[in-house]
Write a protein that binds this DNA or RNA. Structure first.
Lengths: 195, 195
DNA sequence: ATATGACTAAATAACGATTTCGGTCATTGG
DNA sequence: CCAATGACCGAAATCGTTATTTAGTCATAT
């Protein structure tokens, strides 16, 4: 029951103080539980942080699934999904400010360990919509790779520019990618052969 | 006359020892000049490193210009340019191994300061070829953004996987982007309106 | 002029003393 | 009973200080 409470408490503290100056005792106090209680739900402090991050990522995935199921042309849905993938993540991690990178750096190995699984999961959300358009199986992964450079994980918040600029750039890219997907349906052979 | 020699010497040392354990005295010894001589051509150690990096980047730009000028269909040229942009950079920075990131981190501010200019320069190389295909002015920048996630600057060498995998992924993305560009020519309006 | 390397100030490492913090576990109160 | 706790432990971070290294300068030499 308290696992979610602990995660929520850690999230609040992360946004306020950043990773370095958030101790396990702090989390316990903020969540109104004893320190030991945290270790009934999590194996380590790192796992608590990971849980915070994953909650955000899962929330974005939910949004993507919702868009994927909307009754609109697949092209529109796919474009919006790509934009949402980037913008929702941006908005979710914006509050952590520059301390985000300190945090990501601190748990980098664990993050990398699960990144592949998460990409696979995300590809599974995009897959069916890609299917509706032109079909090549691996293209969902390609779409993700193309938009990855806009994620906070890769660029610092300031490098991403303001929300408005990011929105413009990623929208433009999304349109281009969807257009390419549409075209590839007409000309499958060109895309199939990869040296 | 010796500026190039110094840059070359620094490059050799960087690949061998990494950034941290390469002193200005080391560079002077390797280049067979006195330490003071280095400061006749460069304002600081940082500028020497920057010069090493820029030499590589310029070399890649030369390759791109060459491809842009080849007597082939614009679509083929553009696709190869995108692949080359990523793969040539990969091969050039591969030798530095993991010490690359330590180096990039050390001179990050200077790097960021010139990044915008370099992107503009690169966009100017891609621009004409994009024009030949479908034309939208800003799309060159979009193409660069889409392939940025594959550059060593953003991912660690190991995250990029082996050369073969990187090649496959970026080729696939390049084909998709070029296809999209071709399609956008037929349907300009869709791409023009960005919220 | 041009190049140099001894010199200096500043950064970085080394080190031990001290504090902080993640994780455990014997105790407790519901 | 046993889920929850917080005092406790050792490892790791931090600090204050000294020793060493190194980036950058400049008087001198070629």
């Amino acid at each position: 029951m308290s696992a979610a409470d602990i995660t929520a408490a850690a999230d609040r503290l992360l946004a306020r103080y950043g990773y370095r100056r958030m101790t396990v005792d702090d989390i316990a106090r903020e969540a109104n539980v004893g320190k030991g209680t945290i270790y009934l739900s999590f194996r380590s402090k790192e796992e608590v942080i990971l849980s915070v991050i994953n909650r955000h990522i899962e929330a974005t995935f939910d949004l993507l699934r919702k868009i994927a199921a909307e009754p609109r042309p697949a092209a529109e849905r796919l474009e919006d999904m790509l934009v949402t993938r980037v913008l929702d993540r941006f908005e979710r991690f914006q509050p952590y400010g520059e301390s985000l990178h300190e945090m990501l750096a601190a748990i980098r190995p664990a993050l990398l360990a699960q990144r592949e699984g998460q990409l696979r999961q995300e590809a599974r959300i995009f897959g069916p919509v890609v299917d509706e358009l032109g079909g090549e199986r691996g293209l969902a992964r390609t779409l993700l790779a193309a938009t990855n450079a806009f994620l906070p994980y890769y660029r610092s918040t300031e490098e991403l520019g303001g929300r408005a600029r990011l929105h413009r750039e990623v929208r433009s890219l999304a349109k281009l990618l969807v257009a390419g997907l549409g075209a590839s349906r007409l000309d499958q052979r060109t895309l199939a052969e990869a040296p």
